[in-house]
Amino acid sequence: MPLVKSAYKPSLLFKSGHFSTIYSSKLRVAPSVQQLRERIHLKDGDFLDIDWSYSKNKSHQLAILIHGLEGNAQRPYMKGVASHLNKNSWDTVAINLRGCSGEPNRLFRSYTAGATEDLEDVLHHILKNYNYTNIILNGFSLGGNLILKYLGERPFVPQEIKKAVVVSTPLMLDQSLEELNKFSNSIYARYFLKSLRKKIKEKAAMFPNEFSENKWKEIKSLLDFDMVYTSKAHGFKDAYDYYRKNSSLQFLPDIKIPVLILNAQNDSFLSPACLPYKFAENHKYIYLETPKYGGHVGFFDKNNLYYNEKRTLDFIKTL
């Protein structure tokens, strides 16, 4: 498909990628959304909490939302798109990935950028118990990578899934880690690591035979976390094996529904590989939009309605 020319033109302050990222994550007031929680029990004995929000009128259209690393359904970017879609006749359900709903998950394993079996379980639950004929997937950062992998690794996806929109998505996980490890991104790396270390300390207490306290103390970086915990808890040889097998770029060729990838050029989390211009030009279903500005999930716009939220609705209007 032709590359999408972006209409996003923010005000002066929001031309800074770092300002956009930090403001949108820490200072944006989340739109008001009434969320109703449902717990799904998974096949392996664990659980997922999903948060529903509804349009005023009964709808057969559903958007499934997936947050980024150490996010949850209450983050401003999640509530922002849920609010906008609810106002435009879409129900939404936001998935809190394992351990992200405010309660530790039951198992030693947690969530990853490629755990598509959890998305599959949510879809199975929804299709079995609810009457939605049109479903779209909307993911942010890690959640976007998970959605792209899900769509590309299977020969078929449920016919109810019509389109997907992914925002600020690291298509190459190892390269995005390299970007996060740069000094200019140290504030973000420290934030993620602090949250992850807190969770892994809880895991060590829950599973002393799996993860000793001394092992927990070895984690000094995001790479350490994936080496010491992520890879071992989820069946990978090491962190690099995890990155290689779960990076979504390799799954794009086999996607068979329309997908919009919205990645800002000044997103400091993303490497050049996350802006695959030549590939998108020749793919029937991949729409690539790369605004000059936007930071990481920071597409600020007027009236607390973000550009990515407007683009998501615009992209899915015609199914």
Rank of each mutant, 00 (worst) to 15 (best):
Y287R: 14
T290G: 00
F236C: 11
K284Y: 03
F251C: 15
D267I: 04
S212W: 04
K232L: 09
L305F: 08
K215L: 11
D241A: 12
N263G: 06
K232T: 03
F225T: 04
H296P: 02
N209H: 10
S248N: 05
C274E: 05
A273C: 05
P208F: 06
L252Q: 10
H283L: 15
F279D: 05
N209G: 10
I261L: 15
P258E: 14
L305T: 15
I286V: 11
K232M: 05
Y306Q: 04
S212D: 13
F300L: 11
K232Y: 04
Y240C: 10
D226S: 00
K302P: 00
N214Q: 14
L222P: 00
Y285M: 15
Y293F: 11
I219E: 00
Y277V: 12
K217N: 13
K256T: 15
K278I: 15
P208S: 03
F299K: 03
A280H: 02
G295S: 03
P276D: 11
P258I: 14
L222H: 00
S248D: 03
N214P: 00
S231E: 08
Y277P: 07
D226L: 07
Y229L: 07
E281H: 09
E210G: 00
L288E: 07
Y277D: 10
A264P: 00
A280Q: 10
D267T: 08
N246I: 15
S268T: 13
L223C: 05
N304F: 04
F269C: 03
V297M: 10
F251D: 04
K245Q: 15
A239P: 08
G298C: 04
R244E: 15
F269D: 02
A280M: 09
F211C: 01
Y277G: 07
N266V: 02
V259M: 05
S248G: 04
Y243E: 11
K220I: 11
K284N: 13
D267W: 00
L260A: 11
V259L: 10
L275S: 04
S247F: 03
Y242I: 14
N266M: 06
F225L: 08
S212I: 02
G295N: 07
S231H: 01
P272L: 08
N209P: 06
L252I: 11
F236D: 10
L249W: 04
V259A: 03
T290H: 03
F279K: 05
S231R: 03
L305N: 06
D238K: 01
P208K: 04
V228Y: 00
I286F: 01
E213W: 11
F251Q: 08
N246R: 09
K220Q: 14
F299I: 13
L252K: 02
L252C: 06
I219K: 01
F279A: 12
P272H: 10
S268Y: 02
V228N: 00
Y285S: 07
Y293H: 03
Y277I: 12
Y240I: 14
Y285R: 11
D224G: 02
R244V: 06
P253R: 11
S271G: 12
N263F: 08
L222T: 08
H234G: 14
I286E: 03
F269L: 07
